[in-house]
């Protein structure tokens, strides 16, 4: 199941990022889970504000990192889907 470009992903309540000073990296904290975030994960979550659509997120990342949209789309889709499957994120899609 893929996320439509018009859908708006957002982190669920009780799911938050934190800079882990001891280990020197960002983590995503959720019920019973701590997910280590790499630079790409951090960059994606910075754009996932809850008011930007998936399409907006791809535009922003493409501009910011000077990378072709079609090249990053798959990775971003995969990352967000993994969070959706783990009940850390949901999407709202007003167009459906």
């Amino acid at each position: 199941m893929s996320i439509p470009e018009t859908a708006t992903p957002h982190l669920l309540s009780g799911v938050r990022t934190k800079y882990d000073k001891v280990r020197g990296n960002w983590v995503l904290l959720a019920p019973e889970r701590a997910v280590k975030l790499d630079q790409i994960g951090v960059a994606i979550l910075e754009e996932t504000t809850g008011s930007c659509t998936f399409g907006n997120i791809l535009d922003a990342l493409s501009t910011k990192y000077n990378a072709p949209r079609e090249q990053i789309s798959g990775d971003v889709q995969k990352f967000l889907t993994s969070l959706i499957d783990r009940r850390m994120m949901e999407v709202r899609d007003v167009s459906v």
């Binding site: 882990d20 001891v22 983590v27 904290l29 701590a34």
Partner: peptide
């Protein structure tokens, strides 16, 4: 105080 020490040690949860 133990919670403070735990956070300094690297406990997240």
């Amino acid at each position: 105080d133990v919670f403070r020490q735990a956070a300094e040690l690297g406990v997240l949860q």
